[in-house]
């Protein structure tokens, strides 16, 4: 990005290659449509190119580009009146399928069964979260962003994100404990 900011046009190709799948997947979280996600990811890079002079080199690039992608996605959803962010249904089914095929991810037959069941329940519980909570979970655990970066993307503070994340996790844990997973 620094090279792009300094006028090296070749850097754009490298930037797109490096981040295209991250941005595409991120957009897919919001719009749930592969073709729209591709278009939005493409538009994100064009916005990055146009706004390259405004990029603060002292800041991280990934939160900045994710912020641009998020704004594009939210605007797109608003225009198309899509009511919510990805329900994570697909993740749930993926997780169930993977869990069935992935007993090697845990220790011993009992542990495997327990982990499989636990993750299946969790995948279903994610659908009970509101849009804002799901967005934070997605950014933190699916995109592996730190609280500081999430705060930058969604326009909040690091402390607020941590607190919110803690509450989301406790809510998920409590639902599991209370047996509310049978949704």
């Amino acid at each position: 990005m620094v090279r792009l900011c300094r006028g090296d046009a070749d850097a754009l190709a490298g930037l797109v290659q490096r981040y295209q799948n991250d941005i595409f997947r991120f957009c897919l979280h919001y719009v749930r449509d592969v073709e729209r996600a591709k278009e939005l990811a493409q538009e994100t890079f064009i916005r990055v190119y146009v706004a390259r002079a405004r990029f603060d080199e002292s800041r991280k690039f990934r939160p900045w580009i994710l912020c641009i992608a998020r704004n594009l996605c939210l605007n797109d959803l608003k225009r198309k009146k899509t009511v919510s962010m990805e329900s994570l249904d697909e993740y749930a089914s993926t997780a169930r399928e993977e869990s069935a095929n992935a007993p090697w991810m845990s220790d011993g037959p009992d542990g495997q069964l327990i982990a499989t069941e636990r993750r299946e329940v969790l995948a279903r519980l994610l659908n009970t979260l509101d849009d804002e909570a799901r967005e934070i979970v997605t950014l933190r655990f699916f995109e592996k962003l730190a609280a500081r970066d999430i705060a930058e993307i969604v326009g909040s503070t690091e402390g607020a994100i941590r607190t919110r994340l803690h509450r989301i996790l406790r809510s998920l844990r409590d639902k599991k404990i209370d047996g509310k997973e049978d949704l």
């Binding site: 797109v16 799948n21 897919l28 990811a41 493409q42 993740y91 993926t94 995948a123 996790l169």
Partner: peptide, 28 residues
Amino acid sequence: LLELCQDLEWLGDRTRRQTSPVELVGPV
């Protein structure tokens, strides 16, 4: 909570791997 975080990361990892890659360099 650690176990919960690990499980969420596991779900995220599987999703990352299963999302088909895209090629946007040319169009961009």
